[in-house]
């Protein structure tokens, strides 16, 4: 590929800095730490488990709150475990859902074993084939800036796979109390 690989925290910052009142669901592991580090909010739901469930959780939220922009931030390993979700979501095409996959081609939480995305599997092509017609792959700063301009526009589901540096930044750990997170999140949306 050549060039400097994108830093994952920089990517998350660029894509979430204009989030306004958008809600965010994070996939377990580094994406949870990344969002906690650069875009903390009561409108974040941080997964520390349920691997493979982040996109579906965002999808359920998108159906429940059609007027809100729902953003899923997850990793390549987590997305691969729930790959069928791309078919389920593609069949409905929720206009207010965006999925960001931070693809470091490794399973960072378990010792940096190589993932399928470093072994020739093309997840962006899978998303496209599942009907997420705006799916794109980002490898450069220019492509990141282009993706950021479209990321918050609703009308069709977004899928952005960003190749990031496998270097892991310091962990920033949000709450692991899933009940507390649920109550805080719902309260922030005005749901009792």
């Amino acid at each position: 590929m050549g060039g400097v690989m994108l830093d994952r925290r920089h990517v998350v910052r660029e894509l979430l800095q204009d989030r306004e009142d958008a809600v965010v669901v994070t996939g377990l592991g580094s994406p949870t730490y990344d969002v906690a580090a650069v875009s903390p909010s009561e409108r974040n739901y941080y997964l520390w488990g349920a691997m493979g469930g982040a996109a579906m959780m965002g999808f359920g939220l998108a159906l429940a709150k059609p007027d809100l922009h729902v953003i899923v931030v997850t990793g390549d390993g987590e997305a691969l475990m729930g790959m069928g979700a791309l078919a389920t979501i593609g069949a409905v095409k929720p206009a207010n859902l965006a999925i960001l996959v931070l693809d470091n081609e490794h399973y960072g939480e378990t010792g940096m074993q190589q993932s399928h995305l470093g072994l020739g599997v093309d997840l962006c092509a899978v998303a496209l084939a599942c009907g997420l017609t705006q799916a794109c792959r980002v490898t450069t700063e220019a492509e990141l800036q282009s993706a950021a301009r479209n990321f918050h526009q609703t009308g069709a589901p977004k899928f952005v796979q960003v190749k990031v540096d496998p270097e892991a930044p310091p962990r920033v750990m949000p709450t692991r109390d899933a009940v507390e997170n649920k109550i805080t999140f719902r309260r922030a949306l005005g749901i009792s």
Binding site: V23, M56, M57, F59, G60, L61, A64, K65, K182
Partner: peptide
């Protein structure tokens, strides 16, 4: 997770 997300909303 579909149901969990819906309930968050």
């Amino acid at each position: 997770p579909l149901c969990a997300g819906a309930w968050l909303g």
